[in-house]
């Protein structure tokens, strides 16, 4: 019974998080687009995937990554499946660290966001080279460096917002 209730709570949190990610993507394309710096926007969705996966594991992380990426693809010029592919892998890899690294979760998250952004650029380059070759060269520009910096700066804010919304646990040792 206890396990069933715990599973129900976990599933509710996943559904709530998918809804939060959906709202974030809609806002990202409309209102938040006005807050770009030098034409660069932070990848809030990637940060949310990394944070959530770091607490709840690879399975939920890759599912969240896939569906959020698919939604981003529907609302952008990228080929359908492009962001779904990348975010699935990032969700999977971020979830691998669950229960293995015992540091301040915020510091781990910042490191994961940094490496996640780097990995996203590598994957983007390879996928674009195959499917949209004329865009492959636009991955590694100044925008890429600004995006890394931007992502790292806003990671703590997203982290604490998710904690306030109780979508991630407050205790270090807790898992979803």
């Amino acid at each position: 019974m206890f396990l069933q209730e715990k599973n129900k709570i976990m599933n509710k949190k996943v559904i709530v998080l998918i809804f939060v990610v959906f709202i974030t993507i809609i806002l990202k394309t409309t209102i938040l687009g006005n807050f770009a710096f030098k034409g660069v926007k932070p990848d809030i969705v990637l940060i949310m995937i990394v944070i959530f996966s770091n607490f709840s594991g690879s399975f939920k992380g890759e599912l969240l990554g896939f569906f959020s990426g698919l939604l981003e693809d529907l609302l952008s010029m990228s080929p359908l499946g492009f962001n779904a592919f990348i975010n699935s892998i990032i969700g999977f890899l971020s979830g691998i660290t669950v229960g293995k690294i015992f540091l301040n979760p915020l510091i781990i998250t910042i490191f994961l966001v940094f490496f996640g952004t780097l990995f996203k650029s590598v994957l983007s380059f390879f996928l674009l080279s195959i499917f949209v070759s004329e865009k492959a060269g636009s991955v590694y520009t100044l925008k890429f460096l600004l995006e890394i910096g931007f992502n790292i700066i806003i990671t703590p804010f997203i982290y604490f917002i998710l904690r306030i919304l109780k979508l991630i646990p407050i205790n270090i040792d807790s898992k979803l």
């Binding site: 993507i25 394309t29 409309t30 034409g39 926007k41 990848d43 981003e72 952008s76 010029m77």
Partner: peptide, 10 residues
């Protein structure tokens, strides 16, 4: 609306 990412332009 604008592009959500930083690679594509639309």
């Amino acid at each position: 609306a604008h592009e959500p990412g930083n690679i594509f332009n639309s």
